[in-house]
Amino acid sequence: MAESEPSRRGFLARVVIALNALIAIIVATPAVGYLLSPLLRQRSSQWVVIGKATKFVAGVPQRVVYEYDDEGGYSVERTRSVAFVGRTPGDLIVLSPVCTHMGCNVAFDDTAGLFECPCHGGKYDTSGRVVEGPPPEPLRRFQSRIRDGNLEIQLT
């Protein structure tokens, strides 16, 4: 009996570890699924009216404040946001004001004719291309369309 004790002990130790591992897995499975839930949520997109199309004339990019419904699972919140509308011959481009470097909001500098980021001096031209500073990418361009005379952008 005494001789077999260590091996019995070793066996039981393994059983205890296995059982506790099983317990951990049983708890972890729903927990991980729950945590990953945002990844599995369907991304929705919506078209949002940002203004009458005729309002936007050629020249410097215009800053527009628009409203949209921000749906957060169980609540829908009317939210305000900003975009820049630039008009080139034959085309309307709508740019996001979010700097691609660290996400500050850019402003348009009339005298320089450039978008300037207040944070680390990033600069973009009127079509959103980077001309100076740390931003790695041009400003994001919204998908846009004209419906019933309104300029709409797609939010995703």
Binding site: T29, P30, A31, G33, Y34, L36, S37, L40, R41, G73, Y74, S75
Partner: peptide
């Protein structure tokens, strides 16, 4: 969960119905 009278019930319902394993958790 969102602890406000206008969203608490809604958020619990959301957990219950929409979150993966929400009902189980």
């Amino acid at each position: 969960y969102s602890a406000s009278t206008s969203t608490a019930w809604e958020s619990v319902r959301y957990i219950q119905d929409r979150v993966v394993f929400g009902g189980i958790v």
